[in-house]
Write a protein that binds this DNA or RNA. Sequence first.
DNA 1: GCAAATTAGTTTCAAATGTAACTATTATGC
DNA 2: GCATAATAGTTACATTTGAAACTAATTTGC
Lengths: 153, 153
Amino acid sequence: MQNALQALDLEKFLPYRLSVLAQLVSESLHDLYAGPFGLTVTQWRVMAALGRFAPLTASEVGQRIVMDKVAVSRAVSGLMKRGLVERAADPSDRRRASLRLSGKGLTMHDRIVPIALKYQADLYEALAPAERETLNGLCDRLFAHAKLLRKTA
Amino acid sequence: MQNALQALDLEKFLPYRLSVLAQLVSESLHDLYAGPFGLTVTQWRVMAALGRFAPLTASEVGQRIVMDKVAVSRAVSGLMKRGLVERAADPSDRRRASLRLSGKGLTMHDRIVPIALKYQADLYEALAPAERETLNGLCDRLFAHAKLLRKTA
DNA sequence: GCAAATTAGTTTCAAATGTAACTATTATGC
DNA sequence: GCATAATAGTTACATTTGAAACTAATTTGC
């Protein structure tokens, strides 16, 4: 058997690095709220979107958190069963329903937000303030470019 | 109902941003090799690890690509069924088996590597060379710090 | 104003994934 | 040297996820 012509060093390969970093960070944060509050990542993102922008329809939530409508539907269904989210039918368009946090949901939201912000602050301690700006700028540009590549490809 | 005391703007929240960026990049790359070669992300990572470092045991593959042994086992099983990977029992320890790409697997590997590197190059066009270095350095430090936080927490 | 196409959202079925239990083999402790 | 523990890897079961089909309501085109 011959050797590979050209090998790909995963450890230096950007898509792989981003994936591993994002997974570690996402799981670490999830560990902080999953136990006490029993939420999945998607459920928490739905709650965060509603905490900031309610009322929103399910579609609008999906756009905010970059999540397809099936995932949003399931997350909302779980949150409604636990009484964390309320749904109100839109009289002018009965396909739509506007969603908002219930009182109970808002209480939980307000307890999780500081935990999430604290984790972000802890994470940012690895970087100087100017570097945080830099990182965010670079991520923004990468993201925009990746979207562009996807469309043209 | 009252409003949230403090809201979390997901669009500016680092864990969320990393997650969305990594997902977009990972899916875009997957689109490039999934169709022609029918590989999952995990299968491709196993092949990449073997292309670079074979022979490896399943455990060693798992360490390289940060993947638990069940996922590796399943990916390898799929790759063996397609004749892309070969397994040789280790005579000195019959629990272990060393894995390597077959000739067919190597051929596929050598066709995918340039595609992956091309995608990375396209992605990097969003950034100046110095910025690429900067991004990688910042990601490294964030990753190390996130691992540290996880242990201490 | 009505048939056809769109849109919002849910349900269904298959595939992917995670956790725990399991088999087989090797290492450890007494 | 034999029982116990640890390790490599697989299998089984339950849960999550994704794609496609579906329901219900609204909009569009003629």
